[in-house]
């Protein structure tokens, strides 16, 4: 996922989907300096990292941004920091209340 996000072109594609979700390849290519082939390649990498998901509708393939893996990473690290902050507060409380054996 981090490798997928490391490329500015791929971040731009995610920005475009964030701005307008559910776009076709042609719509995503419009106004971009990248070739259609390059966009296809980048979308493949984003899809492989589950940052983009696709739906086929009639003859069209629509691309949607999928932020769930980013939340999972945020959970992993923020959750950890929150736990250590809570532990620090518990320590502080014990110290202030004079219960060394807490």
């Amino acid at each position: 996922m981090f490798r997928a996000l490391a490329d500015p072109n791929r971040r731009e594609l995610l920005d475009r989907l964030h701005h307008r979700n559910g776009q076709t390849l042609a719509a995503l290519c419009a106004g971009l300096a990248m070739s259609r082939q390059a966009v296809t390649k980048h979308l493949g990498i984003l899809e492989g990292a589950h940052l983009v998901t696709t739906r086929r509708e009639g003859r069209e393939k629509l691309h949607f941004i999928n932020p769930v893996p980013i939340y999972a990473i945020a959970d992993r690290w923020i959750g950890k920091f929150e736990r250590s902050r809570l532990a620090a507060l518990a320590d502080l409380k014990r110290t202030l209340e004079g219960d060394e054996h807490g």
């Binding site: 776009q23 589950h50 998901t53 999928n66 769930v68």
Partner: peptide
């Protein structure tokens, strides 16, 4: 699809 007539998102998670 955020088109003239629809708003939609598709989220995927693997569990």
């Amino acid at each position: 699809m955020d088109s003239v007539h629809e708003s939609r998102f598709v989220y995927v998670t693997f569990i």
